[in-house]
Design a protein around this nucleic acid. Structure first.
Length: 257
DNA sequence: ATAGGCCTGGAC
DNA sequence: GTCCAGGCCTAT
């Protein structure tokens, strides 16, 4: 599932299910996935052993013993299902990785927007990501400097993975609410004090969501996302929805300045 | 910055 | 039917 905390929990499950195992067969079931991972390249994965699995932003990298890397991205609706190679496939199975011990990892994705790609040992993936929210080198001063160079309102800038890695539409809006910053504030006009509040809000939001799945109960704890017309949890003002860069933004028009 | 495309399902 | 969707890329 899409944003950093959900991808982190997916990677943890994947690590348990796949680390140290040898691939028996990779099947690409959906035609859109074959554009990047052709049947021939999928076949080349037979016999490869998975050394470890790494998360970078919302990306997942299976590092193989032979130096290659299988790169997965869930986009909007991807997730892993762990089962056995002889189990019946779920309705939205888009690819499968069978291991030599009979276990299996299934890429489930109703919208089929996920991607799988294979990188050669001499061509490691260049993801172009900014720092992780938890990176200690991401200081308020550094973040302030990075934001000062960006044009446009802060909310879409928070979705720019080159600026900070892993935030998506929900947690960008939530973080701005916690920091009491309007999503329409120009990124370059934020004070150091506001950036400090924003960074700590991002860290709080990410940390609280990490380990959880994307469920109805996790959504119901959100402060603004998908709560248009409902009272702000701070000052009871009805939450508003605007569109920025083609995406919904939810915010409180009175306590977010 | 915006629009459209990729895909498909679910809510209305 | 129509609209919307947690992401991201490309064209304008």
């Amino acid at each position: 599932m899409p944003e950093l905390p959900e991808v982190e929990s997916a990677v943890r499950r994947l690590r348990n299910a796949a680390s140290g195992k040898t691939i028996a067969k990779v099947s690409v079931l959906h035609p859109a996935l074959k554009r990047k991972l052709s049947p021939a390249r999928a076949r080349s994965l037979r016999g490869a052993r998975i050394r470890d699995v790494e998360r970078r932003g919302k990306h997942q990298l299976f590092h193989l013993d032979d130096g290659r890397a299988l790169h997965a991205h869930f986009r909007m609706t991807g997730d892993w299902l762990m089962d056995r190679a002889d189990d019946e496939l779920p309705r939205f199975a888009r690819a499968t990785i069978d291991f030599t011990d009979g276990s299996r990892v299934v890429l489930e994705d109703p919208r089929a927007l996920s991607t799988l790609d294979l990188h050669a040992a001499d061509a490691p993936p260049e993801l172009g990501l900014g720092p992780e929210p938890t990176d200690p080198s991401l200081t308020p001063a550094f973040f302030h400097s990075a934001l000062s160079k960006k044009r446009g309102p802060i909310k879409p800038v928070l979705l720019d993975q080159r600026v900070i890695a892993g935030l998506g539409n929900i947690y960008a809006a939530e973080s701005l609410w916690h920091a009491r910053i309007s999503p329409e504030t120009p990124a370059s006009s934020l004070s150091l004090r506001q950036v400090r509040a924003l960074l700590s809000a991002i860290r709080r939001v990410i940390k609280r969501a990490t380990g959880a799945r994307y469920t109805d109960s996790s959504v119901s704890r959100l402060a603004v996302y998908d709560r248009v017309g409902k009272p702000c949890r701070r000052d009871k003002t009805p939450i508003e929805r605007i569109v920025q860069a083609g995406r919904s933004t939810y915010y409180c028009p009175t306590c977010q300045r």
